[in-house]
């Protein structure tokens, strides 16, 4: 991992964290805020692959954990898993896939991340995570975060630009020929 890329990762995560805490916590839709840091983990998994997805997911989750009342490590655990999972999926999908497919997979990743977060929270008997607003948070939170997915992908493209990561994605046209 190059020094420049580490600096880019840290810079992007800190900026997103401040935006999450100061801006997005205030501009809620139906009382729900977007999960920008989870979105960052998803985008990192897509562009960086499983290893970098897991590492950036862990870091973004850990940063969020520092400011939440929930147990420290809960978001880190969830986001690392989701970053890894999306990284694995991105390896299986053609490199030149349509952006709409990428967005849909990212949305599914975010919703899955929210469900996993609550599931792990329930497993460790953390109160308040599963409540009557859970469905609303999933739908509104997922879609609201989805609005920022293109920006998050743009940022992660910038982070992983000219990176040493060489994934095993198979171009779509090659697959069609086979």
């Amino acid at each position: 991992m190059s020094f420049l890329r580490t600096v880019k990762e840290v810079l992007v995560l800190i900026v997103l964290l401040i935006l999450q805490l100061e801006l997005f916590a205030s501009i809620r839709l139906f009382g729900v805020m977007p999960e920008i840091m989870l979105g960052a983990a998803v985008a990192a998994g897509w562009h960086g692959g499983p290893t970098d997805g897991a590492v950036i997911g862990f870091l973004s989750g850990f940063l969020v954990d520092l400011y939440l009342a929930s147990p420290m490590g809960l978001s880190a655990l969830t986001y690392a898993l989701i970053g890894y999972l999306i990284g694995m999926i991105s390896e299986l999908i053609a490199e030149d896939v349509e952006r709409i497919v990428r967005t849909v997979i990212s949305l599914v990743g975010i919703v899955l991340g929210l469900v996993t977060f609550v599931l792990f929270g329930e497993l460790i008997a953390e109160p308040n995570l599963y409540n009557k607003n859970f469905g609303k948070i999933l739908v509104v939170g997922g879609l609201y975060t989805g609005l920022f997915i293109p920006v998050l992908h743009f940022l992660m493209e910038w982070v992983f630009h000219q990176s040493s990561y060489r994934n095993n994605q198979i171009p779509m046209n090659r697959m069609q020929r086979n």
């Binding site: 692959g49 499983p50 290893t51 897991a54 590492v55 862990f58 989750g61 850990f62 954990d65 147990p71 420290m72 490590g73 809960l74 880190a76 655990l77 690392a80 898993l81 890894y84 990284g87 460790i124």
Partner: peptide, 21 residues
Amino acid sequence: GSRFTLAILLLISVTLISLDA
């Protein structure tokens, strides 16, 4: 390598949760 990295991160996360609790 990626599985090993994930395993380490999950272990750290679970340790953090346990210590925080």
